[in-house]
Amino acid sequence: MPLNLTTATVAVGDQAPVLTHTLSRTDLVRYAGASGDYNPMHHDEPKAVAARQPSVFGHGMLSMGIVGTALTHYVGVGALQTFSVRFARQTWPGEELSTEITVTAIDGNVATLEVKLRNGDGEEKVVGQATALLGAA
């Protein structure tokens, strides 16, 4: 299985390239179709407003997916072993979401990474942790 990183090329403190994505209502519709999650809070504005939300909002699993995209770009799809997130805040259409991924520990051939997704104001949307396999040096 291809491993993008090796024990020789990665060090604690390294950061993955930042991935930035401006969330649109169209993204929410596409994600609903792709994931099969048709909760109306994510695509039906009148229902979301009736539920006292300012507008439709992003699926938590879409936030996780965006971070997952940046993670797998960095470590390689087959290298990702675990990926855990806490959904800290809702995401809103129009927000510019940016990933922040830092290597925090290396134990043998496994790297631990801290992951975050923030909006343009720095608000944390999801925070979590992942582990990835590293190739031999």
């Binding site: 699993m61 997952g68 995209t69 797998t72 799809v77 087959g78 990702l80």
Partner: peptide, 18 residues
Amino acid sequence: AGYPGIVAPATMLQAWIM
């Protein structure tokens, strides 16, 4: 890239059974 063929995104795991 070293895979047997096209692979699915990891985070798509649950989507297959929705």
